[in-house]
Write a protein that binds this DNA or RNA. Structure first.
Lengths: 210, 210
DNA sequence: ACATGTTTGTTAATCTTTTAACAATATTTT
DNA sequence: AAAATATTGTTAAAAGATTAACAAACATGT
């Protein structure tokens, strides 16, 4: 689509931040913002902002700045957020439940459309208006709801198996909250989010400074 | 402590992975592992494993490998996990509740000792055996429970205010789940975890490949 | 219309991180 | 006991990412 050359991983994360700030600015009625303003609001340098955007094209006007709404729309398109996405969650424990109910997903275009769990105790329960289903139904429901993204919120020991089922059902992007590395075919994008590891980042740095 | 020179950010995250694998290996009774085995299990290259470890010292034996238990202990010490940490959560919504109940924290040495919320409706409720308290009590309870780490699970609009209160109470490390950049004094370590952004990473990459 | 001041897009320089290569050291085999 | 094999720690090379600098382009004021 845009990708003329390789884009730094971190750039993608920053585009998310930029877009949130731009939306706010637009809603406040602001008609131009500078790379400096974007930078200050998102905690990076102005040069970084311009570089990140330069990977994808020219979106501003020299001597002036950027139009928030326009730039917002561009970034959302770059991120693939110019449409909505259907997401399945596997794991109806505390984390899976919280993620099912999390408002922040819908705001960015992600609709949680089905929830699965292996535990018969949990099957049939309603979460966020959705019935928890067995893993056997996953493949069928994924087709029914056009699910393209999956969230894994199961214990580490079950993660690989669940991911295999998801991949088998045709899911192409997966977030794995289990603290374990799982493998997927080349054409599937996977990302691990290790919550405890985030706290460990803090303790490491606290140890460092004394 | 160890830090003789600057350590890559990503190294810290990988040490977490290594340590989990090493613990497992040790529990299985394995007495030596190679950088290659660690690498395969955690999805990196053997050279990366050795380089990461080399920042902190020499932990292996040439021609042989590493002792899982020993290396595990070293890494846990590097990460500051050779003791337990007391953690406060602010925000008793779905996410805050799930995080309070999440078993993965305790396993890695993090004890959630208090939960706070601004909403009077939530105050007094019990979560994971803990009473939800008002923000006014935060400072006192942080002292009482020796809290050093904080988790922010409140709406974006409230995040900066909550972080200010935490910092005022002496908390030195903060995870911010609100999708907004907040500022802290130099001696406070902060890390933002944006859940929607994780999904956006997927959609970006899916768009890329067609 | 010209000079002054802004702010982008881009190129070059710097800094950081990863990968590769290999000498040093241990183990196993013959 | 020597040769072959394995695996680390370390150094050098390559790749990747960030920062800095500045020409190009626009706006404003005189």
């Amino acid at each position: 689509m845009f990708k003329r050359f390789k884009i730094p991983e971190a750039t993608i994360g920053r585009l998310t931040s930029y877009s949130r700030f731009l939306k706010e600015a637009d809603e406040k009625g602001v008609t131009t913002v500078s790379s400096q303003q974007i930078a200050r609001a998102t905690g990076v340098t102005p040069a970084q902002v311009r570089k990140d955007l330069a990977y994808f094209g020219e979106f501003g006007t020299r001597g002036v700045g950027y139009n928030p709404r326009e730039l917002y729309n561009y970034i959302m398109k770059i991120l693939g957020l110019d449409r909505r996405w259907s997401v399945a969650i596997v794991g109806a424990g505390h984390l899976g439940t919280a993620l099912s109910l999390y408002k922040g997903f819908a705001e960015r275009g992600f609709d949680i459309t089905c929830i699965f769990d292996a535990d018969p105790e949990k099957i049939g329960k309603k979460i966020a208006g959705l019935e928890v289903r067995s893993l056997e139904e996953l493949s069928q429901k994924v087709k029914e709801y056009n699910v393209e993204l999956g969230i894994v919120a199961v214990p580490a020991a079950a993660a690989q198996e669940v991911v295999d089922i998801m991949v088998g059902a045709g899911i192409k992007g997966i977030i794995n909250f289990a603290p374990v590395n799982v493998s997927v075919p080349e054409d599937v994008v996977i990302r691990r989010v290790d919550l405890a590891s985030q706290l460990e980042y803090l303790t490491y740095h606290l140890g460092e400074t004394r």
